[in-house]
C-alpha cells in the first residue's frame, strides 16, 4: 500500500509529467491512496502511471462511476489501478459537473486498458458520462430505449412502474 509520503511523490511525478494543475488533491484514507485529477487530464495521467512512471501500474482493476449529489461537482469516475509487481493499489478519481459529463469531455482509457470497454459502457448507462473516443458507447444493462440514468442520486427508486395486465393501460405508451 502507498503511504501518504509515497502518494505525494506520485502526485509530484504526475504534476511534473502532465501539468501543474492536473492533480487537484491527494487523498489518503484508511490506508488507501487516491489522486483527484482534472477530467481533461485523465487519459494523460493514467497513460503516465501505466507506461512512463518509474513505478508503473500494469492493471486496471476497476472503473466505476459515483454520484456525490447534492455536492458539486457531482459526478465522478473512479479508476482503480494495481501494480501486481509491487502489490500496490492507487485510485484515480475525477469529478465533474453534469454538463461536463454529458458534453463528452472525459477521454476514454480503452486504448490503454481494453478492460475499460464494458465498464465505461456501464458508467455511461448508469450515470450518463459520455466518454470521448469510446468506439461503441451504448447502454449495457438497461434497454437501449431507456430514458434517464438510474444510478444518479436524483433518480427515484421505484420510478419504474411494474407492468401487470390490470395496470398496463395506466402507463403512458404502454402499447409500444
Amino acid at each position: 500500500m502507498i503511504d501518504p509520503t509515497g502518494l505525494e511523490l506520485v502526485a509530484r511525478a504526475v504534476r511534473g509529467a502532465v501539468g501543474e494543475g492536473s492533480v487537484r488533491e491527494t487523498i489518503h484514507f484508511r490506508g488507501q491512496s487516491t489522486l483527484d485529477v482534472r477530467p481533461d487530464d485523465v487519459h494523460e495521467v493514467i497513460r503516465f502511471l501505466h507506461a512512463d512512471a518509474d513505478e508503473p501500474f500494469d492493471f486496471l482493476a476497476s472503473l466505476h462511476g459515483c454520484d456525490y449529489f447534492p455536492k458539486e461537482p457531482r459526478l465522478a469516475v473512479h479508476y482503480q489501478l494495481l501494480s501486481s509487481e509491487r502489490r500496490e493499489r492507487l485510485g484515480v478519481r475525477t469529478r465533474m459537473t453534469l454538463e461536463v459529463a454529458e458534453s463528452g469531455a472525459l477521454p476514454t482509457v480503452t486504448d490503454l486498458f481494453p478492460t475499460a470497454d464494458f465498464q465505461e459502457k456501464e458508467v455511461f448507462d448508469f450515470f450518463g458520462v459520455r466518454f470521448a473516443g469510446h468506439e461503441d458507447l451504448r447502454r449495457l444493462h438497461m434497454p437501449e430505449d431507456y430514458e434517464g440514468h438510474p444510478q444518479r442520486r436524483d433518480f427515484p427508486i421505484g420510478g419504474e412502474p411494474v407492468l401487470y395486465t390490470y395496470n398496463e393501460h395506466e402507463v403512458p405508451r404502454w402499447y409500444e
Partner: peptide, 13 residues
C-alpha cells in the same frame, strides 16, 4: 454508493 466490481462481468470480455 455501493459498487461491486464483479469478476464475471470483467472476465466476460
Amino acid at each position: 454508493r455501493v459498487h461491486m466490481r464483479d469478476p464475471s462481468f470483467v472476465n466476460l470480455q
